[in-house]
Amino acid sequence: MTTAREEGLVTCRTCARVWPGTAEACGRCGARLSSRDALSLQRVWAWWIAGVACYIPANLYPMLVTETLTSRSESTIIGGAIDIAKHGDLGIALIVLIASVFIPVVKFIAIAYLGLSVKLRSQQTPVGRMHLFEVIEFIGRWSMIDVFVVAILSALVQLSVVASIQPGPAALAFALSVIFTMFSAKSFDPRLIWDYLPTRAGSRAP
């Protein structure tokens, strides 16, 4: 078993076609080629820091501002989930908590772990780390649920004097945090996980 790089070739990560090591763009799909993205980890960390930085105000400022005839209330991400739970809809409260708190936090930790493991040239559990990478790429977008909820409610609840709902500043911070973290995961080159392993590691009999 050999890798494309060991053969002096470069693989297109978009269409899986193999090209001579000197090629700059894929002759089939046009994607830019790089045997290993040297700046991959730097970009991962830059987006990661931006994502974490936006996630903090996203939790401190109100996501929704609700005004009714008699009252005005502001709710943060976690406060909103607690309100839903108080209404008795534990399932929906759980969805909100998972999408807005659990997924982003797990994603921050997982990307940091992947970045560090590659930096430290870890040889442990490459298949497990590969799966972890696939999972965070898949679940990251689901965090957008809360942003869409705010958009739906703001459009819907405009009943003149009776009630109105406005998006708070946290909506912007949270949307940016999700987008930056998606960029962070996308910048990660999973081939780095395998580079410090002997080619046979993790393989089944050919």
Partner: peptide
């Protein structure tokens, strides 16, 4: 040749039957 987009391992591409799957020997992509 087909290169694994996730671990760079080279494989020889062979046409396979509909409904079957060819996975990377090393990372199972």
């Amino acid at each position: 040749l087909i290169g694994c987009p996730n671990c760079d391992l080279l494989h020889r591409a062979k046409p396979i039957a509909e409904g079957e799957r060819a996975v990377c020997q090393r990372c199972h992509t």
